[in-house]
Amino acid sequence: MSRGAPDGLAPAPARGLLRRLGGAAARRLLVAATMMAASCALPSSERSGRSTGAIAALAESDVAPAKGASPARSSGEPPAPRAPSAGTAGDAHVARALQRSPLRALRLTGKLADGRFEAILALGAGVEGVGPREVKVKLAPAQKKAPLAFRHPVAFYRLARELGAHVVPAAAARRIGVGELAALIGREPNARKLLRRFSVMNDGTVDALVLAPAPGPPGPRWVSSRRRSIRFDDAPELDIWARWARSPSPARGERASILRDYLEVLALDYLAGNGLRKEIVIDVSAGALSLEANTSAFPLHVKAHELDRQLERLVEAARFPRALRDALARFGPEAAAAALRPGGIEEELVPPRALVELEERRQALLSLIAAKIADRGEDAVLSL
């Protein structure tokens, strides 16, 4: 077995994997992993294109820690352990809170066509260890033009939860009577126009997506913090994080928590076939990243090159979170089906084909990480 490769994760021969994997994006990532694994057999003097030196100078990220929080770790300090996955017993409390806690009011936000509301949710005692109080959440009733769109963000959250990722706010679907919706909306003219656009079921209810204010390990943070959005394609912060990820050792000015979040973002979007990511939210107070617009996850068809941004950055990364690799290894087809199709066709969040493609990309990503481990050793690669 190759040096440093974990049991069951050694790079497989290219032909065998290519027969198993489908989709252009998965094949491109697999080719990169296979080439990397092949280069491990060469003497170090003959290997080309592999960086061995740390990046000497990097601009500091402008994501500042919260007032009173611990200062950012130096590059030589080991990263703090991650908090438990949101997929623990506490997740049941989060789901119940989003699905069953009473709604007090709705206020239209953004464009009318988007149909998004800010909702006041009355949390009960025992929810994430807090007492009874009212919190603001996001709510989007299903519309006739896209009656099942709410399933995509819920599926994306469940994928993140199963992988122990901490960058996706808790999401759930709940059914609300159309009469209750009308009463909550009140007399606001613009909001009442939406009543005719809602997708009303035969029992007089409307499916609605409910989102917690922000992710927090574990579970959500119920109080929205100071945040700002950046574009996924050309924001300077992304180039800084990419340089951190390419460095084989901690770079000067590196924020380990931000780097872990950045790699989680790339992995989740790649696994979910989400090549249409437009923005990432920086939680300035918490020093963390958040993905809050996830309706483009798990599309019916992934077009060629849509995942190129995620693929290129994943291939270039020199280090990965150990917890992410371990979770990927556990998250096989049965676990994916239990999370994304818990009740079969009646409760499916994604179609069967999406599960097949998810497994293809999972295998490709594991092969890429295994090839890097074979090249540089497990401790060097899984150092986040």
Rank of each mutant, 00 (worst) to 15 (best):
A97M: 01
A97N: 00
A171Q: 15
G164D: 08
G87N: 10
R158D: 09
S101M: 11
V154I: 11
P78E: 14
K138Y: 01
A183T: 13
P141I: 13
A64G: 01
G124E: 00
L123D: 02
R73D: 11
R82M: 01
P132T: 03
V94Y: 01
R96P: 06
K111R: 08
A69I: 02
G68R: 05
H93W: 02
G90E: 10
G126H: 10
A72I: 05
A155S: 11
R158E: 09
S85L: 01
R151N: 14
K144S: 15
A95E: 11
D62C: 00
G87Q: 06
V130G: 01
L184K: 00
L123E: 03
G87K: 05
S61E: 09
L121V: 15
P141Y: 14
K136S: 08
L106V: 13
G164I: 08
A170E: 12
E134A: 10
G129K: 07
A80S: 07
I176N: 14
Q143M: 14
R174V: 10
Y157K: 01
G90K: 05
H166S: 13
P79W: 07
A172Y: 15
A182T: 08
A146T: 11
R104G: 12
L98I: 15
A125S: 09
G179C: 06
G179Q: 05
A170T: 12
G115R: 04
V178H: 14
E77T: 05
G76L: 00
R151P: 11
V94Q: 04
P153I: 08
A160M: 07
S101P: 12
A113Q: 08
G115E: 08
R100Y: 02
K67M: 09
A140C: 15
R174C: 12
A66W: 02
S74T: 05
P71E: 03
L98C: 10
K136H: 08
Y157V: 05
P153A: 03
L148M: 13
G68W: 11
L184V: 06
V178S: 14
G68A: 10
S74C: 01
R82D: 07
F156T: 14
A89S: 13
A69N: 01
D62E: 01
V137T: 09
G131K: 02
S85T: 10
S61K: 00
L148C: 11
G126I: 07
A155M: 07
G87R: 01
A182C: 04
A173I: 14
H166I: 12
A155V: 04
Q143Y: 04
L123N: 04
Q99C: 14
A64F: 02
A57E: 09
A171M: 15
